[in-house]
Write a protein that binds this DNA or RNA. Structure first.
Length: 603
RNA sequence: GCACCGGUAGCUCAGCGGAUUAGAGCACUUGUCUUCGGAACAAGGGGUCGUAGGUUCGAAUCCUAUCCGGUGUACCA
């Protein structure tokens, strides 16, 4: 209750001259009030007074303006006993030892709030700002697994939170279209026919190629060469032209490792694997991958504004690394170019390997500059798995040495792994993993067998909510059987309550009603509804979609209880209750939209 | 070894800028059972909040130590 909190804060300030932010929490069951504050207890230390004395004084003084002081504290407030005062003021205050202030909202205040509940909730926290959110980051030549599904859903929700707060949001997607994984896949792919190449073939070949790389020395050497050749193919440009030339291949400096030293072209002529084939295969595979990504994102309702294939930022990264190499930020070590993070208590990482090939680090350097060049962002958020935390810290620390402003604007958020029950870690390298599409299929199957429904909206909501309700950071156990349950704290539960609300509203029109005294169910619902704005703003400032998700669940739970106990249509209280239903649905629609969840008409 | 993250009910998780009796869901037991859609509601059992100390009138929450699990720790992404 923001108003109440503000008014308490003002009273404390007026009385004691302190700038103190009081907490206000829902009162426990045994206290006949709506909200309680422990402010007097916290204040007691600094003021050297007993908590009860402070509480007494707070309750007695400036509250007169906003809040009606109960004549005798401690007693249960009779409904009509405080009525006159309650209607005049917004809340009644009482005290309980050892120094809690308890507030009971007046029905009049509540119903006014409900009647005037704005369906366009708003925040200006990021008004006029440009925020670029990078997430999902799949690699071409590999398949999308559950982790990608998770990060896509969470990343989209966070983007939506920024949008709600007034920002212009760019959803960005960074993917490894060059790199060792591509070489591994292509190595195994060379025996396949180009004609009927599918994404499944590519996935299989990645596993095959990785196995060969790990066990077969000859294959390993060839894959290493292939990796360089892939960069060369990108240099030459293809269906999507590379942005610029490599700085290291222009021959102006002999001391540096050159990116492609061995002449893959001559070598490969002796091979069964000729360059034109390789080039064709690469672009074909890449195209296939991006089509597959787009199709998937489309199916889950996530739209990216910008794709940054690694190949498009590698050269910019190399350019920056070269510049800073001269200034001593980066240095040579064992033939590679590194950033010595140990100076800053971090790890040391390689930016360009001894083969002259830029690593992920360099591409991330290029990426941050490219993003800024493209959008002049005020804030850049990068969402990845936890395992990238230390890695990213090193990259950012190095950039901080020459572009501190960019780093200051960057936030790296991480989430945990999606794991299978029994501590089985999924690995796309080993092939024991759940694909992103598998998860959706499992949900669809459950929906079909339990409710004989093929409603894609419900399937999607179930999936999204299942991931969104967890706090980001920890690992998630995804039990294909359990996680897909359609009852309880689940997407379908939220949707179901909304559908019921819609059904009621489809019949009648509500009108405003004042001086209505809520019953227990109505009041609980009203209280929850007016907390929405506060929760939403908290979710924004903490970048915590799960807070919003859990609030919406509790809200729909409150609604379900109201629904069971308070008939709306045809009742004497109809107009007041309709108003509540409408307010409920407005809040749910708004909140679920931020989570990326749609409400169906029926289910 | 060092660093970071986690350890709350049988299971999956909230809560953790200290505050009145630690909350949900699943599972289990029982009830509502033709009323605006039961994918619902109600009641119940189930917890030494990893362990041990400390700070405090008060600790799941803060501090210290310790155990367990996960992740990271130079040429992968």
């Amino acid at each position: 209750m923001e108003e109440l909190r503000e008014s308490l804060k003002k009273v404390i300030h007026d009385l004691y001259g302190l700038d103190f932010d009081p907490d206000l929490t829902p009162s426990p069951e045994n206290i006949p009030a709506d909200y309680s504050s422990n402010a007097p207890l916290k204040l007691a230390k600094d003021l050297h007074k007993s908590p009860m004395t402070i509480a007494e004084r707070l309750a007695n003084s400036a509250f007169e303006e906003h809040i009606w002081r109960r004549a005798k504290y401690g007693a249960t407030e009779p409904r009509d006993g405080g009525r006159e005062g309650a209607f005049r003021k917004s809340a009644i205050v009482s005290l309980t030892p050892p120094g809690f202030l308890n507030f009971t909202l007046s029905d009049d205040f509540l119903s006014k709030k409900i009647n005037n509940l704005s369906s366009d909730f708003s925040s200006d926290e990021y008004k006029g700002k440009t925020v670029i959110c990078e997430f999902s980051d799949p690699n071409p030549f590999k398949v999308l697994h559950v982790g990608h599904l998770y990060t896509s859903i969470v990343g989209n929700a966070i983007s939506n939170l920024y949008e709600y707060a007034g920002a212009k949001v760019i959803r960005a997607n960074f993917g490894g279209d060059v790199g060792l994984h591509v070489a591994k896949t292509m190595y195994a792919l060379k025996n396949k026919s180009l004609e009927n190449l599918t994404i499944e073939d590519i996935a299989k070949c990645y596993i095959e190629g990785t196995a060969l790389y790990d066990t077969d020395e000859t294959a390993k050497a060839e894959i290493t060469e292939l990796n360089k050749e892939i960069y060369r193919i990108n240099e030459a440009g293809g269906p999507r032209k590379a942005l610029s030339r490599s700085i290291f291949s222009d021959g102006e400096n002999t001391e540096r490792p050159s990116p492609v030293t061995t002449g893959a072209r001559e070598r490969s002529e002796k091979d069964a694997f000729s360059v034109p084939d390789l080039t064709e295969l690469y672009w074909k595979g890449r195209e296939l991958s991006y089509d597959y990504f787009n199709q998937f994102y489309n199916s889950i309702g996530v739209k990216f504004d910008k794709f940054y294939p690694e190949s498009t930022v590698a050269n910019l990264g190399l350019q920056k690394v070269k510049e800073q190499l001269e200034k001593g930020i980066y240095e040579y070590s064992d033939g590679a170019i590194i950033f010595n993070g140990e100076k800053y208590g971090l790890h040391t990482r390689v930016l360009v390997n001894k083969e002259g090939v830029p690593t992920y680090e360099t591409k991330d350097v290029g990426l941050i500059f490219q993003k800024y060049a493209d959008y002049h962002f005020d804030k850049s958020v990068v969402i990845t798995g936890n395992e990238q935390k230390d890695y990213m810290a090193v990259v950012l620390k190095s950039i901080e040495q020459y572009a501190p402003d960019l780093v200051k604007k960057t936030t790296h958020l991480t989430h945990g792994l999606v794991k299978l029950p029994g501590n089985v870690k999924m690995s796309s390298r080993k092939g024991n993993f759940l694909k992103a599409v598998d998860v959706l299929d499992l949900v669809r199957d459950e929906l079909k067998s339990e409710y004989n429904s093929t409603d894609e909206t419900v399937a999607l909501a179930a999936t999204k909510y299942a991931f969104l309700k967890y706090k980001m950071g920890g690992d998630i156990i995804f039990d294909p059987k359990e996680s897909v349950k359609m009852t309880g704290n689940s997407g379908p539960y939220l949707l179901y309550s909304c559908v019921r609300a819609k059904k009621i509203l489809s019949n009648k029109n509500e009108k405003n009603i004042d001086n209505y005294i809520y019953n227990i169910y109505e009041k609980k619902l009203a209280k929850r509804i007016i907390e929405y704005q506060t929760v939403l703003d908290e979710a924004v400032s903490e970048l915590a979609p799960h807070k919003l998700a859990n609030f919406l669940y509790e809200l729909s739970q409150t609604f379900s209880r109201f629904y069971e106990n308070c008939p709306v249509l045809g009742s004497a209280e109809e107009s007041a209750r309709l108003k509540l239903v409408k307010a409920y649905l407005d809040v749910m629609t708004h909140g679920l939209k931020i989570l990326g969840i749609e409400i169906p008409e029926e289910m």
